[in-house]
Design a protein around this nucleic acid. Structure first.
Lengths: 249, 249
DNA sequence: GAAATTCCTGCACAAAAACGCAAAAAGCAG
DNA sequence: CTGCTTTTTGCGTTTTTGTGCAGGAATTTC
């Protein structure tokens, strides 16, 4: 394979999937990692891709791909994400909110999964978009620059027209007394709509946020079906939620 | 075998397979590698093939894998982008399509500009999102993974509810006879809706796309108000468009 | 913090290109 | 056919280019 040919192939992959991993490319094309690295470097020098640790990104993608942006520990989120993707099966309609846990989940989706994902979260959409078998429906409206998600009455109206199989909510605070709470009024409206439009509601929450409360109420515990944390299901911290009728994982 | 005959054979192979290896050719035709190299050099000088280390590539190979890349067209797009942003003033409602030229425009927006941008193009939205003073409205619908833009009846319906001050269209092909044409049916529907929903329609097009046509018609020249290219306004290539009543810049 | 990846640098080796040169082939005039 | 010039080709040598490998540094991950 000619060098130029190889670079063309790489560029094609970058534009198609928004990102490439050097490790994958080198086994795919059957050349050493050094060669791939040098190719990526050259393409980067020409401004055609953006080189990052482990591979390269397309130009439009790099801005939102913040690898470890989270305030909280990443591997907890990965644990949660993996438990969550286990609930999704082929053919499902899946509604997701925004939040870093949700993005982690989007990254953990197995390649062979065929499902339809609906979301207004830009970073989540980017992850879904380069997944080979997932169909993506974007909820449009005004973009909230803070949370990088579309908010507003149009988005809510659109969600209310749906009936998804399952809905995943990134959770800012949860406690037995107040249920799920949050601090952004517009995001709360959206989450409420999502809950109403889903057959099953799953909350993703790292343990630190359990038994904390925020000013605005999203819903009571009776409205959610499952709570996923990084803790084992028998952790005493989760006992009150199980008693309140919430499944945990 | 005569030299002319040999070169014709090589050219034929290049056009057939999009690439040739010098090593293969020389064993095939039974001449030294030097001869092949000299032949390729001549063909390259005549612009019939693209010579690379180890062989040669056809022109169409480059067009498929490096669609108008290169420093030149990047600079051209920047020129176009800068002309385009000059048309936007504070408080405007701006509708934009997808395409690399539009993204370049998004990158060129001055920081102090206060306007509302409406688009279904994910890469464009990403650019707008990080701009300090721009309000962003995202058009939702199913995402086309190819063009990274939302397409479908919902998106079109939403656009038709608007009346934007100005609309910027990335253009794939334009000529006097057929007007604006494109090759993606869904994108064309979207562009048609955008044109209808804008007080002013501006097409952004690099010069190489001028006087070319694609299978699907977007609109006639009478429906666009302005054509922006990297060429000076008095370039003869633009004359027919000016005659047809289109402003150029 | 420790372990695992990934990256960078210099180096060696092979493949290909460039260059000069001379032999071979072709064209041409007598 | 012969002698001459011009073009084309092949061959050695030198340069350049492309690739892989080994190490140590840097970064990410757990």
């Amino acid at each position: 394979m000619l060098k130029k040919e190889r670079q063309a192939y790489i560029l094609h992959q970058v534009n198609l999937h928004n990102k490439v991993l050097s490790s994958l490319l080198c086994s795919e094309i059957n050349v050493s990692e050094d060669t791939i690295r040098r190719d990526l470097q050259e393409l980067a020098d020409e401004g055609k891709v953006i080189k990052v640790h482990g591979g390269a990104l397309s130009h439009s993608f790099n801005q939102v791909y913040f690898p470890n942006n989270g305030v909280y520990s990443q591997n907890h989120k990965k644990t949660i994400a993996e438990k969550a993707v286990g609930l999704i099966s082929n053919g499902m309609f899946v509604l997701t909110s925004g939040g870093t846990t949700i993005i982690e989940m989007a990254r953990s989706l197995p390649a062979q999964l065929k499902a339809t994902f609906i979301s207004g979260s830009i970073p989540a959409i980017l992850e879904y978009m380069y997944h080979p078998n997932i169909e993506v429906i974007l909820i449009g409206d005004k973009i909230s620059k803070n949370s990088k998600i579309t908010v507003g009455s149009e988005a809510i109206a659109k969600i209310k027209q749906l009936k998804a199989d399952i809905c995943f909510l990134g959770t800012n605070a949860i406690d037995v007394e107040h249920g799920i709470t949050d601090n952004d009024w517009e995001v709360v409206q959206l989450k409420r709509a999502m809950i109403e439009s889903s057959k099953m509601v799953v909350c993703l929450s790292i343990a630190e946020k359990i038994n904390s409360a925020q000013p605005i109420r999203v819903c009571g515990l009776d409205e959610i079906d499952m709570l996923i944390t990084e803790l084992p299901a028998n952790d005493p911290l989760l006992k009150p939620y199980i008693d309140a009728g919430v499944k945990v994982a």
